[in-house]
Every structure is written in C-alpha cells, then in structure tokens.
Design a binder for these strands. Structure first.
Length: 924
RNA sequence: GCCCGGGUGGUGAAAUUGGUAGACACGCAGGACUUAAAAUCCUGUUCGCCGAAAAAGCGAGUGCGGGUUCAAGUCCCGCCCCGGGCACCA
C-alpha cells in the first residue's frame, strides 16, 4: 500500500472533527496546561508559510503535553477589528464585517489543512458583539478605578470619593495634575462638574486633552508604540504632535509593577530588556531654583528641574527649559522678547520628523537667571528644543563637564564650563562618570560622585528645595481612534460629563454604516450617524477603541467563551490560570504584551482573577523570509539574459513569481504566459537553461515570493509540512524559506511508512519481540526527542526521528510492540500518518490519547566507548575501551597503540589525560 | 551613539559542564534497479597537499587578531560585519 497522504489526512481531519477529539473540558482530574498562540489579524492576503511556524510549534507541544497526561487548553481565534478592513471598505466598498468574515473563512480553511488540535468550540473574534461586550465591560471597570500608589493597586472610584469627602486629596497625589490639592470641605463645595473633572484625573481609563500622535493619512491618533521614527508603523505615513481630546489608559501608574513582574515570568532576556527600556525608569531628584531678575515681577517664581545626577549641582553652568514650558512666557526679559518669540516660532515650524532627522543645536537665552542654592552666583536660563516638555519637569540643570548634550550646547553658545571632576574632565568632551572625586563642590568636595548622589538629595530635602523622584519614559497610552471598525465606547456625554452606560446596556453595538468617510472636526465616521450619536439627552462617544483593546484580555475569554453572565467565570480562570506557554513574534514586545499585562493586573486588583501576570512563559518564533527570484532584462529590450551571463549586458532586475522557478531554473514558457508584456520575451540561456538570480527578503506579494501553505500541503501533505517547518532550524531564529529542502522530510515519512507497509507484501508489522539493538535505537531516539521537545528544540527532535528510523530500518525492525510506541512519539509532529498506522496495526482507540512511552534506561547502558585518542589535543586515532577502565590501564593500552607509538617516537609522554566517557589526550 | 542577538561546508543547520567540528538533511557527483522515467537503494562530498586512483597520511579550518588551557566553535581581551530594539528621556 502506498502512502496516500492526501486521503489519509482528509480522512482523519474529518474523523477527529466528528468525534470532538480536540474538545477540552474545564473539569478534569488531570493537571492543566495552557498553550496559546498570538491570534492573527485576518488579513486579506491569507497565510503564507511563515505564519504557521509558531502555530506548528505550539501544536506539537500541546499534543505532547496531552500524551503526557495533561488537560491541555489550546485555542485559536481572530483579532478581527482593525484598520486594514476599514481601508479595504473605503477602497472597494465592501463593509468590514463582510470582508472580515471572508478573510476568516480563508484563514480557517488554511489552518484546517495543517491539522492543528485547536478546540474550535472556544474560538473568539474580537469584532463579535458577544466578545466586545466584555471588552466594553472591562473598559468600564478601568473607568471606574484609580490607582492607589500607597498600596500599588487599583481601587474603585467610589472609595476615592469617600476619601475625598473625609480628608480631601492630601494623601493621594493627583496623577493627572499634581498641582490639584483640596481639603474635604473644598471637595464638598465643588460643583458636580468640577468633582467629575477631578475624578477623571484619577481614573485608569480617562479622557483628557493631551498631545497625541496624529496621523493625517490614517485619519487617527496612534499610541506611542505604533509610531516608529516619526512615521506610522502601519503604512509609514507621517505623524505629527497635536493637542486633542482623547481617551487614555493610565498605564504609567503600573510602571513599577510591570517592571517587577518581569522577574516572575520566563521571557527572553532581550524581550524583558525591550520592555524595561520602554518603561524607562530613572532615579533622581527634583530641585527647585529661585528665579532672579532685575525685572521685579517674578521674584517669587521657582524653576523645578529633574536630574538623575544631583551630585553635580555645583557644576551647573546654565538651565534649559523646553520651548513649551509654561514659564517661558513669564520669565523672558524685555530685552530678549524678540529673540525668544522668533525661536519659539522656529521650533513650532519644525515637524517631529525634522527634529529627529537633523539634530541641530538650537536655543535662545531668556534673559532670566536662577540663583544657585549653595553659591552666590546667577545661572542663565535658556530655552532649547533638546529638552522635552513631556519628560520630568520639562526643565534641566545643565552640567556640561558631565553631560554630552549640555557640553555641546555650551560649546555652541560659548558658555563657560565649570569643572567639578578634576582630571576626569579634559576639556575635549563631557565625561558622565560616577567614579570621579568631586572638586569645586562645596559640602561635597572630596566625595566620590556615586556616593554623593544620596548625600546631595538628603541635603536638598532637608533644606526643603528638592525631593527624591523616580521618572519613567513610558507615557499613558492613547486609547481612542477616529475610526469605524473598532469597539464603540460605552460612554455618553452630557454637559461635558462622561457617563458610563450600565452593564445592562452592553454590548453597545457598532452600528452599520455604509459610508466610512470621517466625521466633522477630525472625528471618526460614527459622528456622521446623528440618530445613533444622540442618546438620552446627550451624545455618544464617537471614537472607537484601538486594536489592542480586544487583544489585551482574549486569553481569558478562551477559558469560558460562551459565558453571557461574566467575561470569564472565576472557577474557569481559577482552573486554567496563567498561560503556561505563549508563542508569538517579537513585534508585540512593547505593545500588546505590556497592555495585556496591565489589564491582567487591573483585573487582579479588582478581584476578578487570581493571578496578575497573564503569560508565564513566552517563546518568540522567528520570521521566515522569502527567497525571491530575479530575472535580468537587457535594458530597453524584451530579451532576458541568464544570471551567469548578465555582466556582459546592461540589465534591469525584475522579480519573477517563485512558482515558475524550479530551484534557480526558470520555466520560460510559464514566464511568457505570466504577463502580456512578456509574451514575446526571448532568452539568452546557459546550456539551454535560464538561471535566475536569488535574493533573501521579506515574504511579500510585491516580490512574488509568497509561498502558500495550501500548495505545500497539497503536494507533500500536512505531516511533511509540519515537520519541515520545524526541521528548518531553531523556532526562535529568523530563516529563509526554501521549498527544495522539503524532500528530505517527505522521504523520511515515506520511509517510515515502509516500516509498516510493503508495496507488494502489504502490512509488514509482526508480533516478534524486538531485538535489544532495536530497543536501544528506539530508546535513544525517545530520550532525545523527549528532551528536545521539552526545550522547544524541534529541529533537532526531527533529526533524531530520522536517525532512529534509519537505524530501525537497517535492523529490519517491524515489531508491533516497538512500532506502536514509535507512533505515539511521532504523533505530535506528524499526527495524521501516526493515527493512520496506529489503526492499521490494530491498536485500540486514538493515538491522540495514547500514553507517552517512558525511556527504559537498561537498554541505554553502555559498557564501552570508542574514545578519541589525541596527541597534544589533536585527535589521531580512536580506541574501543571499557567504561570502567582505570587511568593505569588506559596508560598501558594507549602506549601500545601503533599510532600513538608513531607520534611518541620512542619518548615518554609528559602525561596522559583521561576524561571518562569523553576522550584521552597524550601530551608529549 | 547606546543596548540586545548572531557570524560554522555550495545551502538549512548540529555540537551537555571547554573534550572526535560539520550530526541530520538539501544540493551536487558517481553507481545499482528500469526500455526509459518516477520512486527506491548504495557510495562520495570542509579546503589544501601527496598520489593514476583508492586507502592511508600530513597541513589548515567555526568573521578577524591576540590570550588562557593538556584541550577553545564554546572562556577572556581587542576589532570587523549582519540582524533587531531604543534614540535628545536629563
């Protein structure tokens, strides 16, 4: 019987489906294990061979865990809200709901062909109202919460109100505006609207005016992680700063816990590093300086700066404030007014991109000065764009001898530089050391800088002119989008107050809308729906939520996907707990992962779940690159020259579809038929063959290098495809796709099949007792495969299968007793062929529910080893020696070895090194 | 500029704590079976030297240059290149 993978795979996919083979229960005596893939955005392009890499890895691991006796949750769904569907609707007039539905159908059929063990009864779609009902609900919980910094935990707004009524806010600094202070009496005297505005400054999901990343081309604001080098991550459109009313998540309040949580999870070091860089914690101090001026009106003003190096306070030569700083308008002297105005205009004329692209040193003196707190000297205050308004206090104390930017600024404007670090400062460049001994530094003279930092802060605090301060680079996340295809906010505005809908009103459904043109005043398309907007004497919020809303909590919904009373029953989240293994790409390092970590922490604080880190272990799969094929057209002609001869002509390079190329050899007929332009193409060949050039690049339609998994499965079968993707190399690593190599894995499965079936004789499997050699080959393989699967080294596991099979084939092993164990071990990797053969040899039940075999160590015990014999570290020969041999015996035997004798030339060796089970080295 | 990864045959890649570099495959070359092809099987395949060839042998070899060690792809120091992240964050 032949290995008819097409029939076999189809047959078992249907049977498994019919028998609910992958349905998972929330009730089981078995230990649980949760394996999750980052769910895909169902794009119109469908899957290419790069996408399933992580899915195959997680599928193998899920099946392996199941065989090991775990109750494994392994779900899949779709992140189906998002911009591309909306853009597609605008371009083609197909509503997002419709195109999304079609795309999901394509994805599903592609996924099904690969034979994944997903429990599809748990599928979620973020654009499904049964799902986004709970996204809206969680939003309302965040809206109804604030962060208590004392206990580092979210609490309810009602509790905050009680506190305000009793004692005002002196114990709880307002995170939205720390200048807001009030007593209990004042609070009670505030009008409802004032109270509401203050509460908004505390909420974890809040609405406020702020500088946002506005992308004109996309017609929406973007979160910081969606902007890369001043352009949008999606589409590469320019992004500008703009002041707008937006919704935000107060993720900055969780900065400390997001950092601390990294120590409790198994993410790669680089992943942790990216997250902690993004959070960007720094320790330092805020220091107040009195502003002095000949002009009397600002004698009472103070300038607050943030510094991480208060130890350098005696090295201040000037102050710099951001162009947007509120003091700018107040402190400028009459004489400098004109220049300052000109400079501010210049700064405003520069876009974010220009600022980043050309880092010019620019600035202007305000005419005002600060008084140095410890020395009787005046410090000039400058304005410069190198100081950012949004970080720290928007003002710095400049110490040019220790800071590169300050140094360059001082040089550029010829400001004299004070040296406080002696020989550590050369006058050539700044030295940011903490090791130097302080000079010219008053009470800190003679101290090492690293030690002086604390002393300086304590002194400043005791004088009441400074305090210890920790800052973070991370900003609150913009949470609203001026687009249609997203979750509507369950908020109604009445008299400028944001009123939440009640739970009973959820879901607030996204209304149907044919024309997706933007609303007035940079509002989203929903603003055009007057009837919908007008609600209960107020107006509905017309923004929608961003892509990361639905994806921040989807792993919880899988645990209890049909629940219409709760987002997830507590028993369900208690049973499944954290995701044990999460597999996905690194591109979500700071976006999705930080947001879902924050949501999880908030839900934990509010008592809805019992764990605060969503993902216990994260495995990042690498990207699979495309392998493009290039043809060379002689310039201005329709003649194409083969790669080896192209240097003889002036040519233009064109990408050709990889499906028309076998290896590097172009199918010239197919090429002529490809596009009308090429119908009369002629070729200059090498030995009658047209050889293409090749190039590794992104797998993308425009390079014609996309390989569809459907085609591979059609040609070689899903089992081959699965194993080949793993065989390509380590999962975490980026690698190019090369279809040619798949033959090796395909041959492996065919060869495996021949262990069971012969083309003429039929079934070969016997009831013979396997030989010791066969058991040894098998258990050696089992041990390696098991170890490798545990550590996600799937590529070496596939190699081990090949080695094991080669050995068993050589031993002519057809024993059912052994082969049925082999089938179990292979089944996570190649489930279809394993199930087929499992049934063919008369095993009961399904291989999916078999018991994973245990290594029988007695077959692996070795008594001797072929030792490499090295002379001065260089291997010259080998010797078969007993493992329990002693050093003395070794020395005797080695000295008799002819090759060793040859190298010794009659001399005595200096010593003989013997490392048991490793090697022997003769030192001459 | 700073912080992470990574550089091993023609290709994808293996290589516990330093211990036979190149497993397993692809490709290529030669051969067997076949009328032929497909499929399958066998042999060879890091480079160089020596040789008619084979065997054997010798030398070099894991980006480059040093070092530690009986022994280095693996550890240390200095550089080069590639990929990713961050980038006026005081």
């Amino acid at each position: 019987m032949e290995y008819a993978f097409g029939e076999i795979e189809k047959k078992w996919q249907i049977k498994w489906n019919a028998s609910n083979a992958y349905k998972v229960s929330n009730h089981s005596p078995k230990p649980k294990y949760y394996v999750l893939d980052m769910f895909p955005y169902p794009s119109g392009a469908g899957l290419h061979v790069g996408h399933p890499l992580g899915y195959i890895a997680s599928d193998i691991y899920s099946r392996y865990k199941r065989l090991k006796g775990f109750n494994v949750l392994h779900p899949m769904g779709y992140d189906s809200f998002g911009l591309p569907a909306e853009q597609y609707a605008i371009d083609h007039g197909i509503p997002p709901a419709v195109s999304t539905e079609q795309n999901i159908a394509t994805f599903r059929s592609q996924l099904d062909k690969i034979g994944f063990c997903y429990d599809w009864s748990r599928e979620v779609r973020t654009s499904d109202k049964q799902y986004y009902k709970w996204t809206q609900w969680i939003f309302l919980q965040l809206f109804d919460s604030w962060f208590d910094r004392k206990v580092q935990k979210a609490r309810r707004i009602a509790e905050l109100k009680d506190i305000f009524v009793k004692e005002g806010n002196h114990q709880f600094v307002c995170p939205g505006d720390r200048n807001i202070h009030f007593t209990a009496a004042e609070w009670s005297g505030f009008k409802p609207k004032q109270q509401s505005e203050i509460l908004m400054h505390y909420r974890l999901a809040y609405c406020g005016i702020g500088e946002v990343n506005w992308c004109e081309a996309l017609g929406t604001v973007l979160a910081n992680d969606e902007v890369i080098n001043g352009v949008s991550e999606r589409g590469g459109h320019p992004v500008v700063k703009k002041k707008l009313r937006q919704w935000y998540l107060r993720i900055t309040e969780y900065a400390e816990r997001l950092l601390a949580g990294l120590d409790t999870v198994e993410f790669s070091e680089s992943m942790k590093e990216m997250q902690s860089n993004w959070i960007g914690r720094s320790y330092g101090a805020e220091i107040d300086f009195n502003i002095v001026s000949d002009e009397a009106n600002f004698s009472s003003q103070r300038l607050k700066v943030y510094t991480t190096r208060p130890d350098t306070i005696f090295g201040i030569d000037f102050m710099v404030i951001a162009p947007e700083h509120e003091l700018v308008s107040q402190i400028v002297s009459v004489g400098q007014t004109k220049e300052v105005t000109a400079y501010i205009n210049y700064v405003n004329s520069r876009s974010e991109r220009e600022r980043m692209a050309e880092k010019k040193i620019t600035g202007v003196f305000t005419g005002a000065f600060c008084q140095h707190p410890f020395e009787n000297r005046k410090i000039p205050i400058w304005i410069s764009e190198y100081v950012l308004a949004g970080y720290g206090t928007g003002a710095i104390m400049a110490v040019p001898c220790g800071d590169e930017r300050d140094f360059k600024f001082a040089q550029h404007f010829k400001i004299p530089i004070t040296n406080i670090i002696g020989n550590f400062y050369t006058g050539e460049e700044a030295n940011p050391t903490k090791e130097a001994i302080l000079h010219n530094s008053g009470f800190m003279n003679g101290l090492k800088m690293a030690d002086a930092i604390n002393i300086a802060i304590e002194k400043l605090e005791s004088l009441g002119i400074g305090k210890r301060q920790t800052n973070y680079k991370m900003r609150d996340a913009a949470f609203s989008r001026q687009r249609y295809w997203g979750e509507p906010f369950p908020i109604v505005w009445k008299d400028d107050l944001a009123l939440p809908l009640s739970e009973a009103d959820l879901p607030l459904e996204l209304p149907a809308l044919n024309d997706l043109k933007p609303g007035p005043d940079a509002q989203g398309p929903l603003a055009n729906l007057r009837d919908w907007v007008s609600h209960d004497g107020g107006t509905r919020e017309v923004n929608t939520m961003p892509g990361y809303a639905g994806s921040s909590w989807y792993f919880l919904r899988y645990m209890d996907p049909q629940n219409d009373q709760e987002f997830c029953a507590k028993e369900a989240s208690k049973y499944w707990g954290q995701v044990d293994l999460y597999i996905g790409g690194t591109e979500h390092a700071v976006g999705h992962l930080l947001y879902s970590r924050m949501w999880t922490k908030a839900l934990f604080d509010l008592g809805y779940i019992h764990f605060e880190e969503p993902f216990k272990r994260l495995l990042n799969q690498g990207k699979i690159g495309g392998d493009s094929r290039i043809v060379y057209r002689i310039r201005g002609t329709k003649q194409f020259v083969s790669s080896g001869l192209k240097l003889q002509h002036e040519t233009d390079e064109l990408h050709v579809d990889v499906s028309m190329v076998d290896g590097l050899e172009l199918n010239m007929d197919a090429f002529r038929k490809w596009k009308p332009d090429f119908s009369d193409a002629s070729f200059i060949t090498e030995d009658g063959k047209y050889i293409c050039g090749s190039r590794q690049e992104k797998m993308s339609k425009r390079y014609f290098n996309v390989v569809n998994p459907d085609d591979i499965v059609q040609k070689y079968g899903a089992d081959t495809f699965r194993m080949y993707e793993m065989f390509l190399g380590p999962v975490e690593q980026d690698k190019p796709w090369d279809t040619k190599g798949i033959e090796g894995v395909h041959r492996f499965i065919k060869k495996f099949w021949r262990l069971f079936y012969d083309a003429e004789k039929g079934l070969l499997v016997t009831d013979d007792v396997p030989s010791n050699e066969a058991w040894k080959a098998f258990y050696k393989m089992l041990k390696k495969v098991e170890d490798d699967t545990e550590k996600f080294s799937f590529n070496t596991a596939v190699s081990s299968f090949m080695i094991g099979l080669n050995e068993l084939t050589d031993l002519h092993c057809h024993s059912k007793e052994l082969l049925q164990k082999f089938l179990v071990v292979l089944s996570p990797y190649a489930p279809h062929v394993s199930e087929e053969l499992w049934n063919a040899i008369g095993c009961s039940g399904s291989v999916l529910d078999a018991v994973y075999p245990e290594v029988e160590k007695e077959y692996l015990i070795e008594t001797s080893k072929e030792y490499p014999i090295a002379i001065n570290g260089k291997t010259r020969t080998t010797m078969m020696l007993a493992l329990d041999i002693t050093q003395d015996q070794i020395e005797q035997l080695v000295m008799q070895e002819p090759v060793v004798q040859k190298w010794l030339e009659g001399k005595q060796p200096k010593k003989i090194i013997y490392v048991k089970n490793k090697m022997i080295n003769v030192v001459i």
